[in-house]
Structures are given as structure tokens and as C-alpha cells.
């Protein structure tokens, strides 16, 4: 098998485009999905949480054709990945979710509150869910995080500390009054209340 000459350098990103759903989030097309917006598995320990929100463009208009991907550890802060040196949890919990936004740019994630994960210098990070956003008009995935309100650890989180104080609120979900365990998190791709996106 001959090697291509084109293997020095990363393969560039391109947009997911408008027509990914029948391949990547295909339940509407009768195909099986290996990841959905419901991350819960039987016998999962942890505090159930639901995060719902919308993805909005520069004008505040809903983006009805985005794909969101979620990545998080279990309630003990362990990732279902061989690259987590602390070993895998016994749970069947994958910690990966994927949804498309459809009507009004809305999405819902049903999961458990993630545990704390070590950050730089071993200091624990506050509980967070890593979020990737793809859509037509996005040439690269946007990378951000969902943090939780009323979480004392937010004050000592090394990543939130890198974010200008007046923008930190864009990374912290809001509790929905009267509905325990339900949170609201909108992704503002651009604009006055633009969500903080990361480069790692």
C-alpha cells in the first residue's frame, strides 16, 4: 500500500453543512444513533440534571441546524476514555452526547452532574460539561464549557479564572426556578452576550 504525499500537516476542518442529520443524528431517518441527548444508563449513580437551551446567531436568531456534542466524566470525575490515567469507572456511562437543534434552535441534554476533574497542577476544576458546536456557517467546531450555578468550586476553577470576569456568566448555566436539577444554557455564537469559546 503506497503512502499519500499529503500526510504532513493536519487535515483542515470544513463545515458540517446543513445536511448532516441523516448521518450524524439520524433517528428521524430511521437509522440507529450511538449517541443522543440522553446520557443516562441503568444503575448510574450521580445527581440527575437536565440542561436545555438554544443556539443563537449574531442577531439572536435561533440556529435550527446545529449539532452539539457533549463530553463529561461520571459523578466521580472519571472519563470513559483510555487516556484518563486513573482508569475507567465500572459504570456503562459513556459521557458523550450528540443532538441536533431543530425547532427554534432548541436542545435538551439529560445527564448527571459531572464530578470534579484535575486541572493544571492537579488543582481540581469545578464541575463542567465540555461542549462542541457544529453548524452550517461554522468552518470550525466551536469549543466551550457548561458550568453549574451555585457551585462554590467555580470561584477557584482555573479555566474560569482565565475568562474576563464580565464574560464568565456566559459559561454558567442558570437554574430554572422551581425545577430542581433543570438548567438553562444558551449558546450565543456572536453578539453582545457572546458565549466564551476556547482554543486549547
Amino acid at each position: 500500500m503506497t503512502e499519500s504525499r499529503k500526510t504532513s500537516g493536519l487535515t483542515p476542518s470544513q463545515t458540517v453543512g446543513p445536511y448532516f442529520a441523516y448521518a450524524l443524528t439520524p433517528s428521524r431517518y430511521g437509522r440507529s444513533e450511538f449517541a443522543t441527548g440522553d446520557l443516562r444508563v441503568p444503575d448510574l449513580s450521580g445527581e440527575p440534571v437536565v440542561v436545555e437551551g438554544r443556539v443563537l446567531d449574531a442577531d439572536g436568531a435561533p440556529i435550527p441546524d446545529a449539532m452539539l456534542e457533549f463530553w463529561q466524566p461520571d459523578a466521580e470525575g472519571r472519563f470513559a476514555s483510555p487516556l484518563d490515567p486513573r482508569g475507567r469507572s465500572n459504570s456503562a456511562f459513556k459521557g458523550f452526547g450528540r443532538v441536533e437543534t431543530v425547532e427554534a434552535g432548541k436542545f435538551t441534554l439529560s445527564t448527571i452532574k459531572p464530578g470534579r476533574v484535575p486541572g493544571p497542577n492537579g488543582a481540581l476544576q469545578a464541575p463542567h460539561i465540555t461542549l462542541g458546536v457544529f453548524a452550517r456557517g461554522m468552518l470550525n467546531r466551536l469549543h466551550t464549557r457548561i458550568y453549574f450555578p451555585d457551585e462554590p468550586a467555580n470561584a477557584e476553577d482555573p479555566i474560569l479564572a482565565l475568562v474576563p470576569e464580565d464574560r464568565r456568566h456566559t459559561l454558567i448555566a442558570r437554574a430554572i426556578p422551581g425545577e430542581a436539577g433543570r438548567y438553562r444554557f444558551d449558546v450565543h455564537v456572536q453578539g453582545a452576550d457572546e458565549t466564551v469559546f476556547f482554543d486549547a
Binding site: G137, M138, I159, L162, E194, F197, D199
Partner: peptide, 14 residues
């Protein structure tokens, strides 16, 4: 209208 206008925040890889 679908790209961030503020700079990305560079974070360490955790």
C-alpha cells in the same frame, strides 16, 4: 453571523 467576534480564550489542555 455564525462566527465568534470576540477572541477565543486560550486554555491549558486538561
Amino acid at each position: 453571523k455564525r462566527s465568534p467576534s470576540r477572541g477565543l480564550v486560550i486554555i491549558p489542555q486538561t
